[in-house]
Amino acid sequence: MKPKDIIAGKTSLTSLWIFGYGSLVWKPDFKYKSSKVGYIHGYKRRFWHGDNFHRGNDDLPGRVVTLIEDDDATTWGVCFEVTGSQVEESLKYLNVREAVCGGYVTKLVDFIPEDDQSNQTQQALLYIATPDNPLYLGPASPEVIGHQIATRQGKTGHNLEYLLRLAEFMRRSCPHVDDPHLFSIEAAALALVPYLLGAQ
């Protein structure tokens, strides 16, 4: 089974798991049967992808997360199980939200639920933006990324909301997991808020 065949509807799936590590963790916006908090191996989450639609525009793109391959890393998020007609409906929706508007491509990964002591994996569909994507912005310091996020907004809302909701999810659902990249950017962005409010 290949990701492109799943997206194109060339497989008659009655059940599919979709892994979310960004805005999907708090706002999937598609119907699903069940969800589980857990993680995937081999990737690290980074605010290295540009967004000129949901959280920014062409002149001032926002920053959202993508995944970078790293054998020693794990990324925590939420896996959603869609069944029956939900499979086609969710894929149709995500193709617009993630692929057309977001510039993401798909991969299949092994998801490990947090509550599964046997460490059994579940294959899941993943949306990821690669460095060859035109919207890809690449690495920068927490201060630079925090400033960009604190000053950008798009059709879905302010870029800062995206950052804060992701940090809130990690603290609430994965309190035992440290995410220095995420939390350092959150601190840098929040430090700017008083100055930005004073400039208005």
Rank of each mutant, 00 (worst) to 15 (best):
P3Y: 03
K4F: 08
K10I: 12
T11N: 15
L13G: 15
I18Y: 02
P28G: 06
P28F: 06
F30N: 05
F30S: 05
K31F: 08
Y43W: 12
H49T: 07
H54P: 07
T66F: 00
I68Y: 03
A73P: 06
A73W: 03
G77A: 02
G77E: 02
C79K: 05
E81V: 03
G84A: 05
Q86M: 13
Q86V: 13
E89K: 15
L91G: 06
K92A: 15
A99D: 10
V100T: 13
C101N: 14
L108V: 08
D110I: 07
N119L: 13
T121W: 00
A124R: 09
L126R: 02
I128G: 00
I128A: 00
A129W: 00
P131S: 05
P131F: 03
P139S: 14
V144H: 14
H147E: 13
A150S: 04
R152K: 13
K155Q: 14
N159T: 03
N159G: 04
Y162S: 07
L166E: 02
L166R: 00
L166V: 01
A167K: 04
E168C: 07
R172C: 11
S173A: 12
S173D: 14
P175D: 04
V177A: 06
D179S: 04
L182P: 02
A187D: 14
A188D: 13
L190R: 15
A191V: 12
L192F: 03
Y195R: 12
Y195Q: 15
